[in-house]
């Protein structure tokens, strides 16, 4: 018995399709379904409730005591703050990651390997532990805080439990995601192009702007996405280093599934986050296509 080529191909594809379907498709659909339901008693979801878009409306409007709907900007503000925090982190990662990646690409083989190892070593430790480490570093009686306060012209500075602490923690956590793609670009970079630029009258800064950065563009884009996307959903760092005061989208979602026991609203927030990421990635892809032309 010989199956038709189409059937054979379908058969070969089945394991992959099944894996993606079961592990990605079904959970996504399930979450979207939950986001349309109402919250239930102890289980978090009232499975018998009538599906509606009420949870999405809750992001912007809330019901006043007398039943009228008024605009509630608190969730939108958190959303905005998350985007800004993620953008700030991405910027900081680029600022620190670019010189490191450039420098690493110029090293000898052994030194490069050592640097790569050093950059990957933090991943061997749990994210939670690493954030606790920052908690200790930045706290009031910590060495860093004491040093900063000793030289600060503005009097004592609070390093912990604010947006700065979150930015530091997030930058630390995601820096390798920026360095590695940039390093990959610079490792393949033809340094003779830099000589050519100098030869044609470009100073170091001009050569960086006109030759190095444009060619490193795809790496910068990849690194930025790798930092920005997970940053948007981060919740461990804001919870620990932000002290629960500066909430990000990830914290709200976590709270809905945890303490608040409001799974449908948490699911709605997750769907919004997902949509946001899709928008970012699509626009980046469009931008890249346009530039390639």
């Amino acid at each position: 018995m010989s199956a038709s080529p189409t059937l054979r191909r379908l058969g070969l594809l089945t394991p992959a399709l099944a894996t993606i379907g079961l592990l990605v498709g079904v959970p996504l659909l399930l979450m979207f379904w939950i986001s349309l339901l109402q919250k239930g008693g102890t289980s978090g979801v009232d499975w018998a409730s009538v599906p509606s878009g009420a949870n999405y409306l809750r992001l912007v409007w809330e019901e006043d005591f007398d039943g009228t709907m008024i605009v509630n900007t608190s969730y939108l503000l958190i959303l905005l703050r998350s985007v800004l925090q993620a953008a700030l982190t991405t910027g900081l990662c680029l600022l620190f990651g670019l010189p490191v990646a450039l420098w690493m690409a110029g090293l000898g083989r052994t030194q490069r390997d050592i640097m790569l190892l050093l950059i990957t070593i933090p991943f061997w430790t749990n994210l939670l532990v690493r954030n606790y480490a920052w908690l200790i570093i930045l706290r009031e009686d910590g060495l860093v805080a004491q040093t900063v306060n000793a030289v600060s012209p503005f009097g004592p500075v609070q390093l912990l439990y604010n947006d700065l602490a979150v930015a530091i923690g997030l930058t630390y956590s995601f820096l390798p995601f920026m360095i590695l793609p940039l390093y990959t670009v610079f490792e393949k970079f033809d340094w003779r192009l830099l000589e050519a630029a100098h030869d044609l009258g470009a100073t170091r800064a001009r050569a960086l702007r006109r030759v190095v950065l444009p060619i490193a563009g795809p790496g910068i884009l990849a690194g930025s996405l790798l930092v920005f996307i997970p940053c948007l959903g981060a919740f461990v760092t804001p919870a620990l280093l932000g002290g629960g005061k500066t909430l990000m989208l990830g914290n709200i979602i976590q709270m809905q599934f945890g303490a608040s026991r409001n799974w449908p609203f948490g699911a709605a927030l997750s769907v919004v986050l997902l949509a946001l990421m899709l928008i970012v990635m699509t626009s980046v892809a469009l931008l890249r296509n346009r530039r390639a032309k």
């Binding site: 033809d190 003779r192 192009l193 000589e195 050519a196 630029a197 100098h198 030869d199 044609l200 009258g201 470009a202 100073t203 030759v211 444009p214 060619i215 563009g217």
Partner: peptide, 19 residues
């Protein structure tokens, strides 16, 4: 420095800017 010299180079590998 090379960017202030009145000379230009044709490189063996051409070193044209790919972008």
């Amino acid at each position: 420095p090379p960017f202030r010299r009145p000379v230009n180079t044709v490189f063996q590998s051409y070193a044209l800017f790919p972008h």
